[in-house]
């Protein structure tokens, strides 16, 4: 092993100098090692590509101000902030379509909350009258997801 070999400690000292000083020209000569660096004009620190991040215009939340629903309609609402899914898996058949008859425990959609899937039941016996959101929509707590028109009470 050569005694005068450059060590990682030496390198890290140089790294520290490069990072912490605002030089435009840098010359270092220690024993056998010589380093000469020149910074770009006017750049005193990190330079990064000027990537202007385009703010993605998020699809406007369809929730908006609460619209009115027919009297007696049962509203299935989002329990939490999350993502609305109409089917159990990508490409699978949706849980329900408009016109489908549901029982109180029929799963009508999934809300993904913090990566966990929440099956949302209809909570009423009736027919799916409206599905308000597209698959994959972001939802806020209380957003109406579906409207169920309840069956007339039996006698």
């Amino acid at each position: 092993m050569r005694k005068e070999s450059l060590t990682y400690e030496d390198v890290l000292r140089i790294v520290e100098l490069v990072k912490t000083t605002r030089f435009s020209e840098f010359r270092l000569k220690v024993g056998e090692i010589e380093v000469h660096l020149r910074r770009k004009n006017g750049s005193g620190g990190e330079t990064h590509a000027q990537a202007v991040s385009q703010v993605e215009t998020a699809a406007p939340s369809p929730a908006g101000p609460e619209r009115s629903f027919p009297a007696g309609a049962v509203l299935v609402r989002a329990p939490m902030v999350g993502t609305f899914y109409r089917a159990p898996a990508p490409g699978a058949e949706p849980f329900v379509e408009i016109g489908k008859h549901v029982e109180p425990d029929t799963t009508v959609c999934i809300i993904e909350v913090m990566k966990l899937m929440n099956s949302i039941p209809a909570e009423a016996r009736g027919v799916v009258a409206e599905i308000l959101l597209p698959n994959g929509a972001r939802v806020e707590p209380g957003d109406v997801l579906l409207v169920i028109k309840p069956d007339p009470e039996d006698g």
Partner: peptide
């Protein structure tokens, strides 16, 4: 490699042994 990763250095000269 460190010097090469710095976007702000336009010229470098290193001499060693």
């Amino acid at each position: 490699r460190f010097i090469g990763s710095r976007g702000d250095i336009e010229f470098a000269h290193v001499r060693f042994a």
